[in-house]
Design a binder for these strands. Sequence first.
DNA 1: ACTATATCCTGTATGC
DNA 2: TGCATACAGGATATAG
Length: 283
Amino acid sequence: MPELPEVETVRLGLVEAVVGRRIADVHVLHPRPVRRHLGGADDFAATLIGRTFATPRRRGKYLWLPFADGDALMAHLGMSGQFRLDQPDRPNPPHCRVQIGFDDDGDELRFADQRMFGGLWVSPGGAELPAEIAHIGLDLLDPALDLDAVIADIRRRHSGIKRVLLNQNVVSGIGNIYADEALWRARLHYDTPADRLSRAAVGELLAHAREVMTEALEVGGTSFDQLYVNVNGSSGYFSRSLDAYGRADLPCARCGRAIVREAFMNRSSYRCPSCQRRPRELN
DNA sequence: ACTATATCCTGTATGC
DNA sequence: TGCATACAGGATATAG
């Protein structure tokens, strides 16, 4: 599931591949991934032709590919979205939804997405900061992030700490995997009320989140299967470094107790029942 | 105003 | 073997 490290890995691949190139043709193979484009699929394709890409950018899990004229191509990978680069005569990857060809002899840009939670659309005037993502918080790798303000925001939320970590309006880029990893490192239970945590505890939790995502980014992100790959179709290696996520019944690296999987927000949450105890007042 | 939940989507794994 | 169900979880609409 692409979270910040995986999306950043994809962005770095796009920087190498599309900057300065001009779009010559666009084919939308399935309408759903362009559902957020207001003019529909045909307008999406027509609008892109002739544009030249500047340097791709990212906030949290959102990508945007600015054009020199001030507009931008927005992208979200959702659960299973991928950008792939391949020579035009090579077959499309599985579940290819959009093809973007250039006016040179280089690789085509292809957007594949099995589950189609992701998508592409054009953001008018979005080159600097697309209006569609103005509402989400900065992410933990953004130098402009006001960490003290984020800590204060978290500490006034009447909700469990994991829900707050997953709320992209507070701080963006954290999904289920890195939330579980940060909570494991911070020895916190996911239901711990955010407004019961000290300033120091929240600061440590965010430091752990930033650190685990940085470590993942250094090895190309977390992959379990072919649903997340970089623009070359290859996987990241961080899955072997996970301490909590996906490790049900395996021993905790700190204490040896078996990690447990629990239902949480229509998904799963993983924790060590010894290191990450439910706060007493919640029982 | 804020928080919680249902929904979308498809391939894979598991149970009967 | 085949059918049904559970599961993976981003963001968002809707409900409370």
